[in-house]
Amino acid sequence: MDTGIVGGSGYGGGELLRLLAGHPTLKVRTVAAGSRAGEDLSTVFPHLNTSGTLAPSTPEALEGCDLVFLATPHAVSMALAAPLRDAGATVVDLSGAFRLPAEVFERWYGMDHTAPELTPAVYGLPELNRDAIAGAGLVAGPGCYPTATLLGLKPLAGLVDPASLTIVGMSGSSGAGRGLRDNLHVSHATANTAAYGAPTHRHTPEIEQQWSVLTGADHPVSFTPHLVPQVRGMVVTLNAQLLDATAPEAVPAAFHDAYDTEPFVTVVDGWPESTHVVGANTAHVGAAVDPRTGRVTVSCAIDNLTKGAAGQAVQAANVALGLPETAGLPTMAVYP
């Protein structure tokens, strides 16, 4: 199946290229980029041991592609999604352009939405939304923080007070993309940890939207992300008050019921660690109840570039196209 990647010079695009190189069905036909169009892939990503010239990010350059991944800024995704769909391609978008209703997007992202008729698209977290993804023509890939958060939250729906939720996220610097910023310089980021974006981080409404789907009611959440001194990987830890009717033993049972048959989610004893998921499309989840306070703590570790972005996009594409969900996706991490 002929496949296109737009945003092929960024971290998400590079990860897509790495994963699709081993996919049995999806074959990369066109790799497009913005400012780096015309460059050779061997220069942009020497680690991939591949070559080819980056095309411009236009619908014409992607003609003939059955599937297109948009690993692009929000505005570029808005401009390309409709013409690609009109040309018959299945589109999986890694940006935030189609995760939210247009008016919510505009409020949180501070920019006009130029394709409101496409919002919200089918939410591309298979563990929550597999049936809706199947056959979808436009899939909105979740953000990395919402992915880890929602995998931790799914088993808790109905067991906790949904208004009591607090979330703390920790991510490596690759989550900010390939662009340069002062706080990402080695001299600053090395041995430094800092909160950022709270209380208005753009992933907050995405978490709230899906938490409301899980609980059946709208509830605001408190979310505080942190930048930690590592390149890849993230851990999200959340805490909530158990309902009076929830027995402590119901919590581990709920996690095993939710995930023991999932190919990419593992319920671990103890607490997940980010180094155990690097390079894999896996999520490790751990939970514990504090009988003293009646609260539950859940932690989830993912690779922000794999299960949090490109790997999840491939997983969603597999589901959308009726392919084996695990095709082309590693479950073994790179360690150490």
Rank of each mutant, 00 (worst) to 15 (best):
92 V>Q: 10
36 R>H: 12
253 A>I: 00
270 G>Y: 04
221 V>A: 09
94 L>K: 07
262 E>V: 04
245 A>N: 07
2 D>A: 06
108 W>A: 11
319 V>Q: 13
52 G>H: 08
42 S>F: 02
316 A>Y: 08
43 T>F: 09
139 V>T: 07
72 T>C: 14
335 Y>F: 14
71 A>H: 12
246 T>D: 13
316 A>R: 13
158 G>F: 02
288 A>C: 05
229 P>C: 09
139 V>E: 10
27 K>V: 06
182 D>A: 07
53 T>Q: 10
23 H>Q: 09
329 L>M: 07
327 A>I: 01
17 L>M: 12
185 H>L: 12
324 P>F: 03
296 V>W: 00
42 S>R: 13
38 G>I: 00
277 V>C: 04
191 A>W: 15
112 D>N: 08
184 L>C: 03
145 Y>F: 15
266 T>P: 02
5 I>P: 07
164 S>T: 10
54 L>P: 13
89 A>R: 07
125 L>V: 05
109 Y>H: 14
14 G>K: 12
265 V>F: 03
253 A>L: 05
323 L>P: 08
54 L>Y: 12
136 A>Y: 05
145 Y>N: 11
101 P>I: 05
53 T>N: 02
72 T>V: 15
107 R>G: 07
54 L>W: 12
291 P>A: 05
73 P>M: 05
318 N>E: 12
166 T>N: 00
96 G>E: 04
295 R>D: 00
143 G>Y: 10
236 V>L: 01
302 I>A: 04
80 L>Q: 12
307 K>F: 14
179 G>D: 14
281 N>W: 06
226 H>V: 00
119 T>C: 15
125 L>C: 05
334 V>H: 15
276 H>M: 03
89 A>N: 03
89 A>C: 02
299 S>L: 00
134 A>H: 11
283 A>E: 14
149 T>L: 01
108 W>E: 08
145 Y>W: 08
310 A>Q: 13
261 T>Q: 14
84 L>K: 14
298 V>R: 00
172 G>C: 04
219 H>K: 05
41 L>W: 08
229 P>M: 08
211 W>I: 02
